[in-house]
Lab assay of single mutants.
Amino acid sequence: KYLVLALYDYQEKSPREVTMKKGDILTLLNSTNKDWWKVEVNGRQGFVPAAYVKYL
């Protein structure tokens, strides 16, 4: 498993997404889509914009 760092705040806009705050450390679950990565944060799984996170 990889960890990624939230570069920006992101507010979920659909039930498939998750909210994150700048500085959050997220567990990367799937990065096959170049635009949306599946992550786990605070016990929830969902998608965030790939451009908003970077590998640690």
Score class of each variant (00 low, 15 high):
residue 23 G to F: 05
residue 8 Y to R: 13
residue 55 Y to S: 12
residue 4 V to E: 00
residue 42 N to F: 08
residue 5 L to E: 14
residue 54 K to R: 14
residue 39 V to D: 00
residue 15 P to C: 10
residue 51 A to E: 11
residue 31 S to R: 12
residue 33 N to R: 10
residue 19 T to L: 03
residue 33 N to L: 09
residue 42 N to K: 11
residue 12 E to T: 08
residue 25 I to P: 02
residue 21 K to I: 09
residue 32 T to H: 13
residue 31 S to D: 14
residue 52 Y to I: 06
residue 27 T to R: 14
residue 35 D to K: 15
residue 13 K to L: 10
residue 32 T to K: 12
residue 7 L to W: 05
residue 30 N to F: 07
residue 34 K to F: 08
residue 12 E to R: 13
residue 43 G to M: 05
residue 55 Y to R: 14
residue 1 K to W: 11
residue 15 P to D: 13
residue 48 V to T: 02
residue 54 K to C: 15
residue 40 E to K: 07
residue 50 A to Q: 06
residue 15 P to F: 09
residue 54 K to T: 15
residue 24 D to C: 06
residue 35 D to L: 14
residue 24 D to F: 04
residue 5 L to T: 09
residue 37 W to F: 09
residue 38 K to E: 13
residue 49 P to G: 02
residue 4 V to L: 15
residue 34 K to H: 11
residue 51 A to T: 12
residue 36 W to S: 03
residue 48 V to N: 00
residue 14 S to Q: 08
residue 28 L to N: 00
residue 16 R to P: 06
residue 56 L to E: 07
residue 39 V to R: 00
residue 36 W to E: 04
residue 18 V to T: 06
residue 28 L to V: 09
residue 56 L to F: 13
residue 11 Q to D: 14
residue 15 P to Y: 09
residue 10 Y to C: 02
residue 19 T to V: 03
residue 1 K to Q: 13
residue 28 L to D: 00
residue 35 D to Q: 13
residue 22 K to E: 08
residue 17 E to I: 04
residue 11 Q to A: 13
residue 55 Y to W: 12
residue 41 V to D: 04
residue 35 D to A: 12
residue 32 T to A: 13
residue 50 A to G: 05
residue 50 A to S: 13
residue 22 K to N: 04
residue 8 Y to H: 12
residue 9 D to G: 06
residue 5 L to V: 15
residue 23 G to K: 02
residue 47 F to A: 02
residue 7 L to R: 06
residue 13 K to C: 10
residue 54 K to A: 15
residue 38 K to N: 06
residue 31 S to C: 13
residue 22 K to C: 07
residue 22 K to Y: 04
residue 17 E to K: 05
residue 34 K to M: 10
residue 3 L to W: 12
residue 9 D to N: 08
residue 12 E to M: 13
residue 40 E to I: 08
residue 5 L to Q: 12
residue 48 V to P: 00
residue 41 V to T: 11
residue 8 Y to A: 13
residue 55 Y to C: 15
residue 15 P to T: 11
residue 26 L to E: 00
residue 12 E to Y: 05
residue 7 L to Q: 05
residue 52 Y to L: 12
residue 29 L to G: 01
residue 48 V to W: 01
residue 3 L to E: 07
residue 1 K to A: 13
residue 38 K to G: 06
residue 53 V to S: 00
residue 26 L to Y: 10
residue 55 Y to E: 12
residue 44 R to Q: 09
residue 21 K to W: 09
residue 11 Q to H: 14
residue 35 D to T: 14
residue 49 P to S: 02
residue 13 K to T: 14
residue 11 Q to E: 15
residue 27 T to L: 14
residue 43 G to D: 08
residue 50 A to R: 13
residue 36 W to N: 02
residue 14 S to M: 08
residue 2 Y to R: 14
residue 16 R to F: 14
residue 10 Y to Q: 01
residue 20 M to F: 11
residue 8 Y to T: 10
residue 3 L to D: 05
residue 51 A to D: 10
residue 47 F to K: 03
residue 40 E to N: 06
residue 32 T to G: 11
residue 24 D to G: 03
residue 33 N to W: 07
residue 42 N to L: 08
residue 3 L to F: 15
residue 11 Q to S: 12
residue 33 N to S: 11
residue 11 Q to K: 12
residue 20 M to T: 03
residue 39 V to P: 00
residue 29 L to F: 05
residue 49 P to Y: 02
residue 25 I to W: 05
residue 51 A to N: 13
residue 12 E to C: 11
residue 33 N to G: 11
residue 18 V to Y: 03
residue 52 Y to T: 07
residue 34 K to V: 10
residue 41 V to G: 08
residue 10 Y to D: 01
residue 16 R to Y: 15
residue 37 W to V: 09
residue 26 L to P: 01
residue 3 L to A: 07
residue 33 N to K: 06
residue 50 A to V: 06
residue 26 L to S: 02
residue 7 L to V: 09
residue 18 V to C: 08
residue 31 S to E: 10
residue 9 D to H: 05
residue 7 L to F: 04
residue 7 L to G: 03
residue 17 E to Y: 06
residue 24 D to I: 04
residue 13 K to W: 04
residue 6 A to S: 06
residue 2 Y to F: 14
residue 43 G to C: 07
residue 38 K to D: 04
residue 44 R to C: 05
residue 7 L to I: 12
